[in-house]
Structures are given as structure tokens and as C-alpha cells.
Write a protein that binds this DNA or RNA. Sequence first.
DNA 1: GTTCGTTGTCAAAGCGCTTTGGAGTTTCGA
DNA 2: TCGAAACTCCAAAGCGCTTTGACAACGAAC
Lengths: 340, 340
Amino acid sequence: MNLKQLSEMLGLSQTTVSRALNGYPEVNEATRERVLRAVQETGYRPNKAAQRLATGKAGSIGLVMPTAPGHYSDVHFGEFLTGLGEEAVRHDFHFVIMPADPDDEVGALRRLAISGNVDALFVAYMRGHDPRLPLLKSLSMPFLVHGRSFGTEPDYPYLDIDNEGAFYDATRLLLQLGHRHFCLLNGPGHLDFAIRRNKGVVSALAERGLELPESCVSHMSMTDEHGQLAMERFLQLPEPPTAILCSSTVLALGAIRAVTQAGLKLGEDISLIAHDDVLPHLKPENFSVPLTTTRSSLRAAGVRIAERLIGTVKQDGPFPEQELWKTELIVRASTGAAPR
Amino acid sequence: MNLKQLSEMLGLSQTTVSRALNGYPEVNEATRERVLRAVQETGYRPNKAAQRLATGKAGSIGLVMPTAPGHYSDVHFGEFLTGLGEEAVRHDFHFVIMPADPDDEVGALRRLAISGNVDALFVAYMRGHDPRLPLLKSLSMPFLVHGRSFGTEPDYPYLDIDNEGAFYDATRLLLQLGHRHFCLLNGPGHLDFAIRRNKGVVSALAERGLELPESCVSHMSMTDEHGQLAMERFLQLPEPPTAILCSSTVLALGAIRAVTQAGLKLGEDISLIAHDDVLPHLKPENFSVPLTTTRSSLRAAGVRIAERLIGTVKQDGPFPEQELWKTELIVRASTGAAPR
DNA sequence: GTTCGTTGTCAAAGCGCTTTGGAGTTTCGA
DNA sequence: TCGAAACTCCAAAGCGCTTTGACAACGAAC
């Protein structure tokens, strides 16, 4: 069933039917209702490709999903996507996901943009000096980035959390508890959030005249396995840490395993604060020793980003160009006074 | 830059340029190279919407993502998607993801199909008597389901793992170890895999004249929190279990927490076998007591499904209509002889 | 009675691509 | 030398929709 058939069936022109469907005023209410009823009965749905071709819009936002045989799927990605979807469904928007080799993200993004398949772009996993930013700016298509790109002028629309502040606050709390030996279990070093969290820790330590030696920082993709490995290494250090900052509850999972296996008690021998993205399957309050965390909901960020992006496409704006969300520091049992 | 501009630039007709690009034989090799070079230089990319309108195909597979404010994002979903993507990227296919209220999955699927946005459909999270199946069959669009639908004639293309066999084997192993009191920590009861795993356990027990009382089965969405709750309940039973079958390593995470907190030793006081989807962030060999599992890679299933689906669209087939993958039973330390 | 807005409708152009049905050139065997 | 068979290439139609510009029909205003 297409427009032509529908309009012939109704004895109307395609113009009138189209207008009736799209809420234009210059059509008789009786006619409009007749059309609407026919649509109900026939189950007619406009062909999106044709609609897009004619209008240039089709209610979709595009994103690139890095993927390759050895590439870890990221728990955080799914959670974020759910947030995006939660909002998108309210506006009858959909996503076009272009899988891409991690080495070719820029190319994939360009292809996606000029494929004419999407109205707006979303990018995440920002890196320092991210090469996608210049491309996005040159594209004349709405976009929004989740996170920021360290080292790039922040003159692009983004939504980020205050990673530096979160880890600054967390470190400060641990310092107040008397800790002096810190380790940072961070995400991949080229990612923006990792850079900023690092910075937060370093500057809090610097206020007390302390440093964060390179041997006390680990940069790895955020799986529990990596958490365990890194933690085991930390515990081998000549001066083992009593305080751990951790970029994800997933990493913490592994790290705590290493702590326990070393016969140490979390919250007593060693304190740990992790960043909590509020993953529904991994709640910090459910850890055997409940985790002190910096918290910010990844899903909520997804919802908000979809809201802004869709609003921009529909020109519902104006939206703030840039948003920086504060995190909450929630104290539970995994932090305690430094052992002496 | 569009076809018209490109062809004018080259002094050729649109026909010839189009044919040169799409590998048709009736074009001079020299001309083809000239076209290809121009494409390189200008960065021309055909408009997908137009392509789709003209051909009816556009290299995309569609799926519905259930999502709502209270709805759990599923770790398994992300992992599976990564698998799909891994294969799709090789064929320059992309996904169209339509988020939908969980109550309206059938409607969303229909809308997605007749939107003309996709060449093929994929569905998962199959339920018993799944209402999407009749729709799919009536749609005359290629589709593939992950899993099966209990109670429906299996006359549709699917890829599934042998859930019943897996849990039958697992139960049998535990029986051989002397266990007599079983509990099953299963996924949501309306889902097909949960039904079949239940069946596997029941039939293995029946061979020994044992039953699985309703109080010994839990049906919950697969989060570690639910795992803990259910396990706590099991441990309160007048006759507490010594053997646990568990539908996911995520559930196992919580269950083991409950076991430990109850002062019981995994692999001694209580044995547990979990199904392992090979989630990269949750490896059974890394649990404090390594987990005995039935294993089948979710990502591999994603790759295979994309392969079949894309092959069908491109008519590369023939592919087997139905595939049933065996799982592996891998024995680690979480299973041991029944305590007496 | 003519003129002028309104209102409701339509025919046709156009979005960027593929594909059908030729048509002009060469090539080659008879 | 000629006609048939390749080779190359092209003009135009068509995919299903939106949107522009025009046109009747109808009162209201002059």
C-alpha cells in the first residue's frame, strides 16, 4: 500500500492525503478524518526512504559502534543505548548503527553522515585531541558528543560529567581518612575521561604535596579481568597502596578479587572508591563490602542526549550547547581510615 | 555532490557512472577507472535513501530494542550486538534499531518492517507462543530468530543453542556427584530458553525419580541482585539445596554472594553450574571459586546470525534454515561431591 | 454584478538513484 | 563490402513521497 493507491482508493489526490497525514491546516476536517480512518483500516505507513528523499529528514540518529573480532563489547555501551532508546521511542525516532573497525571510526562516521541515512550524529568514547571533532564540525549536520576531548577547544555541543571533580573529591576524602599511598585503576589512557580522572587525582594529591608515580596508575579497558591483573601488580609494589581509585565498578569487581585473595580486608587494610555508572546488573551496594562510589547514571545521560539531539533535529530547541553534570560521592563500607 | 553533478563533471551520463560504480560489465575499463578516481577525489557517496527507493535494498538489518524507564538494559544484548556488528561491518551493512515499549514489540516490529527502512529483520528474546512469529511469517521479508518459540511449530528460520540438552547434562553431572536437592535459578519464565532449561533439569531429575518443586525454581530477570535474592530464599527452604543450576553468570554472581554470606563454601557445601554466554567482562574462571559452566558464545551467535541474514538479503545462500548449537559443559571448582 | 479573499483540492515537479530500451561505433567473419 | 554481433554509452522512466503553484467554488465586500 502506498500513497498513490491510498489516494486513489479515497478518490483524493496524493497532495491532499499527504497533507491530511502531516497535519497541514489547508484540509477539511471531514476529509482529514476520512483519510485517518482509511489509514487505520489499511495499515498504510509512509515509506521512510521516500520520505527522507523528499524531505531530507527521516527521524533517525546515527552512531558508530566500534567492533572487531578481538574488541571487547562494552557493558556501558548497552546501558547508554537503552537510555537513548528510552527517549527516542517517545518521538518515533530510530537509530542507525554503523559498525566499524576501531581503526576506521573517522571514516565510518563520514560515510554514515554522507550516506543520507541519518539526521544527526552522536559520538562517544571521546579521546584526547579526538580526530572526529574536526570532521563533525565540518559536516553541517547536528551532532552531540558524550564526553569531551581533552586538548580541543570546547566549542562543540557536548554532555559530560565532571570526571576531574569526581576523582578530585574522592581522592580528597581518602586523604582526609589518612591515606598516603594511592593507586589509580583507570580506563584506557587515550580516553578523555581517563585523562581527566587522572588529573583530578593528581591535583588533589598535589595539594598535600603528594605525587602519583606512573607505577601506581594502570590504564586498561574496563573488564573485571583487567581489574584483577592491575590490582595484583599494585599489591606487589615495594610500597603497596592503601587507597585505590577505580574508574568502573566492573574494574572494581576484579580488583576486589585480588584484594581478597591477597588476604586483605576491603575497607580496613585497603580502601577503594569506584566510579559507578549505575549499571543495573552491578550495584555497588551489593558488593560483599558495599562500595563507596562517585555516581552518575549513564542511562540518564543517554536519555538527555537523545532529548537534545532529537530536539535539535525537530528544531524544538534551544538547548544548552554544553552540559557538565556533577557526580555524587556516596560513602559506603569500602572506605575507612588508613591503617597505620 | 550527487550522481548528476559527478556525471556532468565527468562528461558522462548518470547511467554510465552508476554502472561503473556498481560493477556492471557494459562499461569501458578506462571509463570505469576514470569514474573511480573521480569518486576518490570528490568523496562522492551515493545517497542511501535514494538507492533504497530505487532498488528496494539498502544494506540494513532491523531489530527492535525493548526499552522503557524501568526496563533493565541487558548485558547480553550488547554482547550479541557486537557479534552482529562484527560481521555486518564486513559487508557494509548497518543496523536500524527501533526502540519500543516492551508491551508494543509486535507493533514496533510491524512498523519497522513496513517503514521500508530495512532489508531483513532479526528478533530475539523469544517467548513461548511468541506473537511476533505469525507477524514475521506474514511479512514476506527475510528474518531470523535467535532462539525458538516453545509451543510454535518450528517452521521458521532460527539459530538456537540446545538449552534443554545443556541443562540436562549439567543436572546429570550433579546427580552423578550424589546431589539430590536441586534448585534452578532461571531467567524470566515466559522466555523460551527458560522454559527449555527448566525442561532439561526436570527430565534429568525424573530419570532418577526426583522432582523439581515449584519452590525450588526462581524466574527473574538476570541481574546479580535477583540472583542474590533468589538464592537467599532457597537457603531458607526446609530442605535447602546442595546443587544449583543457574541461567547466567550474572545471576551466579549474586547467588554466590548469598552462599558466601550464609557461611557456606561453594564447591563443597553447595555446588553450582551456570550457563556462560562468554561475556568478556565476566569470566567464570575468574570467580573466587572458578565456575563450572555450560558454555556457548553469544557473540559467535551474533556473527553467525548476521552472516546468514546478510547472505539471505544478498542471495548468497543457501543457508540452513535452522541451526541448533550444542553447548560445552566445562567442569571447574564450583561443583563437587554432595555433602552427606 | 464585479472583485477579492478564503477554503479545499489538485497536477506536476523534484528528491537522487537504478534500470530499461535503444542507439551510435567498432570489430569481424562471410 | 556488408551485415551481424559485440561494445559503449545515453535518454528517460520510475521508486514513493513532499511541496509549489494554480484553480475552482463560494461568500463577502464594493
